[in-house]
Design a protein around this nucleic acid. Sequence first.
DNA 1: TGTACATCAGTGAACGCGCGTTCACTGATGTAC
DNA 2: TGTACATCAGTGAACGCGCGTTCACTGATGTAC
Lengths: 227, 227
Amino acid sequence: MSTTRRQRIRAATIAEIKEAALDQIASGGAASLSIRGVARAIGMSPAGLYRYYRGLHDLLTDLIADAYGDLADAVSEAAAQPGTHRQRLRAAMVAYRRWAVSQPHRFLLVFGTPVPGYAAPEGGETVEPVLRMGRAFFTVAVEAWRAGVLTPPARFREPETSEVELAEELAPGFPPEAVALLLGSWGHFHGLVTLELLGHLAWLYRDPEAFYLAEVDRILDGVLSDG
Amino acid sequence: MSTTRRQRIRAATIAEIKEAALDQIASGGAASLSIRGVARAIGMSPAGLYRYYRGLHDLLTDLIADAYGDLADAVSEAAAQPGTHRQRLRAAMVAYRRWAVSQPHRFLLVFGTPVPGYAAPEGGETVEPVLRMGRAFFTVAVEAWRAGVLTPPARFREPETSEVELAEELAPGFPPEAVALLLGSWGHFHGLVTLELLGHLAWLYRDPEAFYLAEVDRILDGVLSDG
DNA sequence: TGTACATCAGTGAACGCGCGTTCACTGATGTAC
DNA sequence: TGTACATCAGTGAACGCGCGTTCACTGATGTAC
């Protein structure tokens, strides 16, 4: 327990740093994040920040990991609520958009144009969070499949090896077409969210929520047959 | 005709500037574009560039407009080829991805995270190119509707005023649901393209083309009934 | 409980860098007569 | 066809800025005995 005092303060400072960094990103984009800017915001000398992060790159990595984790949490939680498969998938898609719209800068940290000079962490670290969030959707899909209400397309191209492998890993016998179907659906609602976030729907929709919800229903119609 | 000589050189220089600027963007992202960098690349002093652009902002605006125009051209051309409605819409969607994949930096100039400090041009300029590209799709859709093969969703939410207005403008009697349907479809393939471009599909697909094409067919099934 | 020492948090000055933009200028190209 | 003048393209030096990072340092917090 001797670790406490200094460590608590340290944790609080890290939180303060992240908060200031997110503020900076929120107002000027990820590329405008700077050590000096954060230091200024929390009233510390620039050099002091090097006690907490080895450099700008590490701070950014931390923020991205946080964001991805948060989004995955929001989606997973929504998908875990009781209800029909359709209700749970809908809830997950709605949570995806809600999270994105409520903190666009963090969403774009994960899914926006990569920051120049910042190379995303290697394979392992990239794969993990994608799968983690994906699993929220796949889990419900597997359950729907077991219940016989998942409708993969009748005629389908030759499945790719990677699709077969992932399907087998999700649940023995799970159809590889359904893997593609779910990823395609992700592309669908993800696209709607990014278009909204970046203002490409603003010329038609002042508030695209109703539009989004209707599209979600279309997506669900393409995946489930539980009415 | 006295205008020629100097003007031809000037046009060539502008082309050279843009080319160098795109190179810079291709390798470091839009945020890394700089007057000095471009000047260096074409062997001119930084100050000299101010004979051609009033500043960095103007150059960037020009590049974005070019990119949007090019993309619109590629899509329009594809949609204008002879063929069934389904073939033409498919060609347009394939052209959208091909253009994006072949020059990701230019696609992201239009649809990526906005460059910090760069505010997109006002209303008019933003609306025009969106509609211009959209018209390629809408035109085919209107023809399909006239041919009776467009299938807007049976049950639909109350259409919004903006949807009704746009539908009326496209063609008297054109169903507002179809407007939403087409925009939703745009979100679908746009999402697939951005996910691919930013590497979020790489963990599963080495080459997502087959996946994309299959999704395009799903999209078309949701829009057309011409089989 | 008290003291000697080690670790940690944070400072302030300094480094070298690339940036956008302005300014006064030189020399070449075009124009009017 | 030739000359006087205006316009244009491009230079080079300079400005002030914010940046990431390093370094030697001071003072506070924790640890061992």
